[in-house]
Computed example of a mutant assay.
Amino acid sequence: MTLPTLFVPHGGGPCFFMDPNGGPPDPMWQPMQAYLAGLIDSLPEEPRAILLISGHWEEEQVTVHAGNGQPLLFDYYGFPEHTYRLRWDAPGSPDVAARVKELLEGAGFPVGEERERGWDHGVFIPMMVAVPGADIPLVQLSLRKDLNPADHIALGKALAPLRDEGVLIVGSGMSFHNLRTRGPQVTPVADEWDDALTAAVTDADPARRAARVAAWDQLPHAHFAHPREEHLLPLMVALGAGGEGPAVRDYRDHVMGWTVSGYRFG
C-alpha cells in the first residue's frame, strides 16, 4: 500500500510539553497537538519507519542520519528546565537510512552520512505527540544548506519509492515562520500568504504545483512569512515525494497571530 507524504507544523519550541506535571498545553496549541496526535491513525496502514526532514538541520550536502538520535538535541532556548529532560527513545533504522542514501545517490545527489547528532526539536517535539510510544523507527534527513527549492523537490521525487516500502515521509517545519512578529495585527497578512501558498500547494496539476511552490518567493508576503526559508523547505521534499497524487491542506489554525497549515500529498 502506498503511504501519503506529509508536511506538518512542529510548533514553537517544546510548546506541547510546558506543564511539568504533563498537563495539556496552552489552549492556543491544542488544535495543533490534536492534529499531530491523529496522524498515524489517519494513514492507510501503520508505517514500518518514518523518514523525517526537519527545518532545524542543514548541511552542505544532504545528509542522512544513520544512528538512533540519542541523546536528543535540545536546540531551543529560554524554556523551563524540565523541557530539557524530555525523552523520545525511538530506534533508528539503518536499513532505511541505507535505502535513502541509495535512492538519492541514484538520482545524482551527493549524500553524507552521520550517526552522532541528536534528533532536534523539529523531530522529537512533533513525534512525541504523533508517536508517543516511540515504537516506530525514525531516520532523519537534513536539508541542503543552499535551500534551493527545485532541488529539494527533486530530492523528494527521488525518495518517492519509499512510500511503497512502508516508510512515511514527513516534512517538519512551519508554513509561517517569522519570529520577529506576532499578535492579531499579523493575521490578515498571514492569511493572505497562507491562501496563496495553499493555492500553489494544492494545484491539481502536479507539474504546475511543483513550479508554483518552487517559486514560493513570488507569492504575496513571502519574505514576511519566511525571512529565511528553512522552515518551508521540508514542504518541498514532501511535495516532491508526493508524486502525481492529490494534494490537500489537512490542517489550518492560528497561533501567535500566525496562520499555520499542514499538507498531505498522495
Rank of each mutant, 00 (worst) to 15 (best):
P184G: 10
D203G: 01
A207T: 09
E192K: 14
T198S: 10
A204H: 02
A199S: 10
A196R: 03
P206I: 00
T181A: 14
N178I: 01
T198Q: 04
G183Q: 05
R182A: 14
V186Y: 10
P206Y: 03
D205R: 08
A196L: 02
A190G: 08
P206T: 12
Q185H: 12
D195A: 15
A204K: 11
D194W: 01
A204E: 10
A200H: 06
D195G: 06
A190P: 04
T202W: 01
A199H: 06
A199D: 14
L197A: 05
D205C: 05
L197W: 11
P188V: 10
A207R: 05
A190V: 04
N178S: 08
W193K: 07
T187R: 12
A204L: 00
P206H: 03
A196P: 03
R208A: 14
T202K: 02
D194L: 09
P188A: 05
V189Q: 03
V186T: 12
W193G: 09
D205N: 08
E192N: 11
P188F: 04
A200K: 08
A207G: 04
D194H: 08
P206W: 00
H177W: 13
D191A: 14
R180G: 15
T181V: 15
A199M: 06
R182T: 10
D191T: 15
H177V: 15
A190Q: 02
L179N: 05
P206S: 09
T202E: 03
E192A: 15
D191Q: 15
R208E: 13
A207D: 10
V189G: 02
A207N: 00
D194I: 07
R182F: 13
D203F: 01
P206M: 01
E192R: 15
T187Q: 11
V189K: 05
A196Q: 02
T181I: 14
L197C: 02
L179C: 05
R208T: 15
A207Q: 11
V186H: 07
A200N: 12
P184C: 05
P206A: 07
T198D: 01
R208M: 10
V189D: 00
G183Y: 10
L179A: 13
G183E: 13
R208Q: 13
D203K: 02
A200V: 12
A207I: 07
N178L: 11
L197F: 13
T181K: 15
T202Q: 09
D195L: 08
A204V: 10
E192S: 10
V189E: 03
D203M: 01
A200T: 06
G183I: 14
L197D: 02
D194N: 06
T202F: 00
V186W: 14
D194C: 04
A200Y: 11
P188I: 11
A207Y: 00
V201A: 04
L179V: 11
P206F: 01
A204Q: 09
P184Y: 00
A199K: 11
V201F: 07
P188Q: 06
A199Q: 10
T181R: 08
D195M: 09
Q185E: 14
T187V: 09
N178G: 08
T198R: 11
T181Q: 12
